[in-house]
């Protein structure tokens, strides 16, 4: 099962490399758009794990993205996009 999944991923990787297709379209990786350090838009997220004024932890398919800073708020949340606003000091991928 694991082998077949690995094979599939490598095949997708090859396709991406061959046809120059953006990765976020084929693979379900999160797409983060940041505007200075005051706003971050995360597409392709799964759930909000933790939310307070200093830490916002957002779970994506493979990774967990943590925004650290001061006065952090979730400006908008929809089923495929979440916008974080505030003074963002660090972004961690775990």
């Amino acid at each position: 099962m694991k082998d077949s999944r690995k094979k599939k991923e490598s095949l997708t990787g090859k396709l991406i490399g061959r046809f120059d297709i953006p990765e976020d379209v084929i693979l379900d990786v999160p797409r983060i758009t940041m505007m200075d350090n005051t706003e971050a838009r995360i597409e392709n997220y799964e759930t909000v794990l933790e939310y307070d004024g200093e830490t916002i932890c957002i779970a994506c398919k493979k990774k967990c993205i943590t925004f650290c800073g001061k006065g952090l708020t979730i400006a908008v949340i929809t089923d495929d996009e979440v916008t974080v606003q505030g003074n963002i000091c660090a972004v961690q991928f775990g």
């Binding site: 939310y51 708020t73 979730i74 949340i77």
Partner: peptide
């Protein structure tokens, strides 16, 4: 947080959280 996730999943738009 769970409330936010469920709302997002149900297509309920929340803002200024």
């Amino acid at each position: 947080e769970r409330f936010l996730n469920v709302c997002a999943a149900k297509g309920i738009l929340l803002w200024n959280i």
